[in-house]
Design a protein around this nucleic acid. Structure first.
Ligand SMILES: [Mn+2]
Ligand SMILES: [Mn+2]
Ligand SMILES: [Zn+2]
Ligand SMILES: [Zn+2]
Lengths: 136, 136
DNA sequence: ATCCTACGTTAGACAGAGTTCAGGTCAAGA
DNA sequence: TCTTGACCTGAACTCTGTCTAACGTAGGAT
């Protein structure tokens, strides 16, 4: 996540304390924070950061391809810095916890041509649902 | 969808004009309407129907297992009367059109035990994304 | 057929998530 | 250091969905 600063600068983006702090928060494995969680953690490092800036920066990171947006349910979207390797998600139906998973097989290949209705299919998302150990 | 009226009655539910109209709107194949779309169409048949009743009735139909809630993106949930046969969805990234698809294989079997992190996995959703013929 | 009443409906207030905007701030090149 | 346009802020606003109190009515009881 630290060379993100370089990538952003390479695209002519100003490196502000706000953007640095958001990038800092989105660091680690199995990180799937909501925008408000990102804002709360960023505000511990930079108290005056605004909600709007967090939303703007997250949206920019998504456009850059550095962060993936995960729409789990009727709840808030989660922002996932693990954009390196493609993966799918396992979501707890009770508490909303999200884990990265790597299923076998290629779901795209499982969709036969006659089931594509003339669409140009380019991506597939798989969401597994169940109860996590704490909630079971 | 017409014997839905009977199933509801069998559960001791009152059959009101509002519920009949919502059931009427949710009729056909590849129907994936948002709650507000259901409300708009229901209101053409029964102008005084309220938004709250549409939400209530849709929630009841989901609890009954007669309708499936589909969260396509960060937008409004869609309500799908095709609850008979399990299926997945193909969504146009441009216009949002949703089609029912039936991929081969069992995605649940593709998630090995060591990728389940102790979860009790009970369901899986697959969403294919791409451009529909009109948008391509 | 009429009455009763618990269940259903309504309008509007409310809440959470996210967007927009006018005005103030500041990163970084000259 | 100066300049400037990109960036940030707070507040208002939209969108989706829930809740509530008062009103209406489906359908069994009489
Ligand atoms: Mn992830
Ligand atoms: Mn469907
Ligand atoms: Zn859980
Ligand atoms: Zn389309």
């Amino acid at each position: 996540m630290s060379d993100l600063v370089e990538r952003l600068r390479g695209r002519g983006w100003r490196m502000t304390s706000q953007r640095r702090v958001v990038a800092e928060v989105l660091n680690g494995d199995h990180v799937h924070l909501t925008a408000d969680e990102v804002h709360a953690r960023a505000a511990r490092l930079l108290p005056e950061i605004s909600r709007a800036t967090v939303y703007n920066t997250l949206g920019e990171l998504v456009s850059l391809g550095e962060v993936i947006e995960v729409a789990t349910d009727g709840r808030a979207k989660r922002y996932d810095p693990n954009a390196h390797r493609p993966h799918q998600h396992l979501v707890c139906s009770a508490c909303g916890t999200v884990r990265d998973v790597h299923p076998a097989g290629d779901p795209l290949a499982d969709l036969p041509p006659e089931e594509r209705f003339g669409f140009t299919v380019s991506a597939v998302e798989v969401t597994y649902r169940g109860l996590c150990p704490s909630c079971a």
